[in-house]
Amino acid sequence: MMQKTLLRVVIGGSILSYGTFLALILVGGLNTGLAPVLQEGVDAYTDPVPQALILTAIVIGFGMTAFQLALAYRTYQETGTDSLDELGRDGGDGEDA
């Protein structure tokens, strides 16, 4: 995400969110029971809460990635560059931001 190419930043963001998913499931504890789908005669299930959180995160992450991609695409179409350095120079927002 600290690179200068738009595409690399988007990919980086995606991979960062993968890491976040894993971190969430880790905090919940690994492999401590069966999948949280209720069955007769089973009372040890894994924690469903992190899974619910991650499910939400996956969907949001997908939305974000799609949006970023569209943004990158349009940015390149409009400005003819995918380098953040160039964009910063052209936009001039380095001074006024």
Binding site: F21, G33, Q51, Y76
Partner: peptide, 30 residues
């Protein structure tokens, strides 16, 4: 492996779509 069937299913759907999106945008990016 971690007993999360819903996550597996969702990722299985989302992942190819994401990949597709990337590949689609590629055509227009340098």
């Amino acid at each position: 492996l971690f007993r999360a069937p819903d996550l597996a299913l969702t990722t299985l759907v989302v992942e190819p779509v994401t990949l597709l999106l990337f590949l689609l945008v590629f055509v227009y990016l340098p």
